[in-house]
Structure formats: structure tokens, C-alpha cells
Simulated scan of single mutants.
Amino acid sequence: MAEREDKNNYRNPSQDVFKGLWEAKVVIAIAFIAVFVRLSHTNEQPTTVPTAQVITTSEVANYPDELIGKTVAVRSRPLQRVGLSSFTVSDRRFFGGEPILVVNASGRPFDLPSDRENIIQVTGEVRNLAIAQIERQYNLSLQDQYYRDYINKPVIIARDIRLAPDSTAITLR
């Protein structure tokens, strides 16, 4: 009888190894599923920038009728802040370039770089500045006194603002 109990308690070492591997596969599969689910839900907002025609600020200033309503991307130097949610950009380093107003409608604050030599990329729709209409459409509060010089001029309503990728390769006039 003692011999029979020994046979029932005997385990094959290869069965233990296979059982351990099976359990490891299950744990690894669960970990992969958890990582996949986490990665697919980390960003609420899309990180891709809308496809846009890359142009210069001079083109916005000189050909506004052709660009109104179109989404464009501009790589330029920031000039100065205008109000709480806007700033100007220009691709002309010295005299002659008319600055273009950029209204930040991205929903994320953007601090102008302290080094004005840094190039930023702005992607958004070209529009004529109509303060009341833009405030309603984008839920913004623009202070009229800062925007008097830009009324009925082309502006970019920015949906994405960032430091320009590989800005060292960009040479602006």
C-alpha cells in the first residue's frame, strides 16, 4: 500500500516544466494585451498634424484670397505676443516682411521660445480676422484692443503649434 501512495505522489519532471511554460505563456499574453490596450488609449487627442501645404508667411500676406479657408503649415520665426492667445510670425529676418497674426486655437498653451532664432511650425486655417466670429467658433476670448491692426487681414487659426522639426536645416531670409 505504501508503494501505491508513492506512485500517486510521483510527478514527471517534464510535466512540471510544460505546466510552468504554459503558465508563463498565459502571463506573457495577458501582459501583451494590457500593454496594447494601454498604448491605444494613452492619447486622447491625435498627435498627427493635419496634412497641409507648407508655405511662407510672405505667401499668406501676398496671396490671401487664394489661401482663405485652406489649411497651411508655416515655418517661421516668432516675433511678438499679441494678447493672451496670439502672436505674430514672419519669415523675413530684416525689413520688408509683413508679420502674420497666429491665433492659438489648439486648446494647448504655447510659450514662444525665448531664443527668437528658433523656428516654429504653425498649422492651421487661413482666415480674415473677424474677432466675434473667431471667438464664437473656437471658444476664445480675444481682447479687441490688441487686434485693431489685424482686422480684416489674413491670420492663421492654429490647430497645431510646435518647434519646427529639424529647424537647423531651415534657412529663412
Rank of each mutant, 00 (worst) to 15 (best):
G97I: 04
D166N: 14
D16F: 07
N62Y: 15
R81G: 08
L129K: 09
S167D: 12
K19Q: 11
N152P: 06
L163F: 08
T123F: 02
F94K: 14
A169D: 10
Q145I: 08
R173Q: 08
S58N: 08
T42Y: 04
E66R: 15
L112Y: 03
G69N: 04
W22N: 13
S90F: 10
R4C: 12
G20P: 01
I131P: 01
A158K: 00
V27H: 06
A105I: 04
T88N: 11
T168A: 14
D166G: 08
A52L: 05
P113E: 15
G96M: 05
L39C: 05
A29R: 01
P154S: 08
W22Y: 09
D6V: 14
T123D: 12
R127C: 09
A61I: 11
L163C: 00
T48K: 05
A164I: 10
A29S: 05
L21H: 09
D16I: 10
I151N: 02
P46V: 12
L142K: 04
A34F: 00
A29M: 07
Q45N: 06
V37Q: 07
P46I: 06
S76N: 06
T42F: 03
Q80R: 13
E23P: 04
E5S: 09
I156H: 04
N139P: 02
P13W: 03
R92E: 13
D16T: 15
W22I: 05
I170Y: 04
I134K: 06
G83N: 13
N8T: 11
D166P: 00
G83E: 12
Q145L: 02
P165V: 00
N104M: 00
N128Y: 12
R108N: 03
R38K: 11
I151F: 12
V126M: 01
G83I: 03
H41G: 10
S141H: 04
V89E: 02
Y147Q: 10
